[in-house]
């Protein structure tokens, strides 16, 4: 912790008032930053947990899709599977937007797909299941991408805010406090000196008064 004091041009009352005002502003700033850091840290932890959860879910889903596809391909000709993959979804798009959390702009990705038009029952039901399964995987992958990009953004902001909080907590505020303390002691010392001086003058005047009488 910094115990240094600020360099002062002159130790005056005005300087003392100014320093106290400066300390109040620094403390307000520290509180705002600390609250923001708290929100961001919580967000980071929750994003991190979500990323792990989604990653494992994707692995499970991919395994399930592969198994389903293997099973289906054992009794479905390859050209039917290929045809189905071409007609199942007519258009697909990814909406790229942004959301804001505690002053940090985070990406928001949403997968939108329009199911193609084909007669129900043309393709085996298991193939439909495989299609749905892969669509779910795609959706999850996009969410994972969003979460991982958010982790980077929030992490960078946490680092930036933490640096400021630490500077205020360990350098600026203690330094201001010790300077204020130094000034207060200086004033007290000056007051004591003044008191003694006045006492001394009183004694001298009293002595002179005796002599004059």
């Amino acid at each position: 912790m910094s115990q240094q004091i600020l360099r002062l041009a002159r130790p005056t009352k005005i300087e003392f008032i100014r320093l106290r005002r400066r300390l109040a502003t620094a403390r307000r700033l520290h509180k705002v930053l600390r609250d923001r850091l708290l929100i961001l840290t919580q967000e980071l932890i929750s994003l991190y947990r979500e990323a792990i959860e989604r990653r494992s879910r994707i692995h499970e889903e991919v395994m399930r899709c592969e198994t389903e596809l293997m099973r289906t391909s054992s009794y479905t000709p390859p050209w039917v599977i290929e045809e189905f993959s071409n007609v199942r979804i007519s258009t697909s798009s990814v909406v790229v937007g942004s959301r804001v959390v505690a002053g940090v702009r985070l990406p928001l990705l949403e997968y939108e797909a329009k199911t193609g038009e084909y007669e129900h029952g043309t393709y085996p039901l298991t193939l439909e299941e495989v299609g749905k399964c892969y669509e779910e995987v795609l959706r999850e992958v996009l969410r994972l991408a969003e979460v991982e990009a958010s982790i980077f953004e929030v992490g960078r902001e946490v680092q930036r805010v933490r640096r400021k909080v630490n500077a205020l907590e360990n350098i600026i505020i203690p330094r201001l406090r010790s300077t204020i303390k130094y000034l207060r002691m200086k004033f007290e010392e000056r007051e004591r000196e003044d008191k003694i001086r006045r006492k001394r003058i009183k004694q001298i005047l009293a002595r002179k008064g005796v002599m004059l009488r």
Binding site: R22, T25, A26, R28, L29, V32, L33, R36, V100, V101, A102, G103, K164
Partner: peptide, 15 residues
């Protein structure tokens, strides 16, 4: 300090 505080409050409430 004042400008830092102002900027932080601006960031905090900007969203």
């Amino acid at each position: 300090y004042e400008s830092l505080l102002r900027n932080e409050l601006r960031v905090v409430n900007s969203y």
